Simulated scan of single mutants.
Amino acid sequence: MYGIKHATNRDGLLTLTVWTRRKSGYGSDFDKFDETLTSFVTGTGVSLLQGYVLNVYGPDGTRLHHYDTTRENSS
């Protein structure tokens, strides 16, 4: 991972954007990656209580993962 950005939209939805040098997805390691990332983000004071949307992009800009934990999409 070489870049991370977090922001909230006007509805208060948290979006996490990550840029990685990986050319393909995380596969079965994605849960561990997400856990490590969210631990880091919450350590900086960002709240995940309302859920979040995570997008992971590879070095060429291809989206490798889209993960949505917001209330509407987590059931």
Rank of each mutant, 00 (worst) to 15 (best):
K23A: 03
V53C: 06
W19T: 07
K5H: 05
D60N: 07
V56Y: 07
V18T: 08
R22N: 10
T62R: 11
L64W: 04
T38F: 03
W19C: 04
T70L: 11
R10F: 15
L64M: 05
T70Q: 14
G61C: 06
L14M: 05
I4G: 09
M1T: 13
T8R: 15
L49I: 06
T38G: 10
T70H: 15
R10W: 15
T44V: 02
D68T: 07
R21K: 11
L54Q: 05
N9D: 15
S74V: 13
D29H: 08
L16S: 00
T69C: 06
S28I: 04
T20V: 14
H6V: 12
G43W: 07
G61V: 06
L37E: 03
D29S: 13
T36Q: 08
V41P: 11
L13H: 13
S75P: 15
H65E: 09
T17V: 10
G43Y: 08
Y67F: 14
R10V: 15
F33H: 05
T8H: 09
F30N: 00
T42Y: 06
G43N: 12
N9K: 05
R71P: 15
R63G: 09
S74L: 10
G61P: 09
F33C: 03
I4R: 13
E72C: 02
D11N: 12
G12R: 02
T8V: 14
H6P: 00
E35V: 02
K23R: 11
A7P: 00
S74R: 15
R22D: 10
T38A: 08
A7S: 13
G51A: 01
V46E: 12
V46R: 08
T36C: 00
R63N: 10
R21M: 02
S75W: 13
T70W: 10
D29G: 10
T8Q: 14
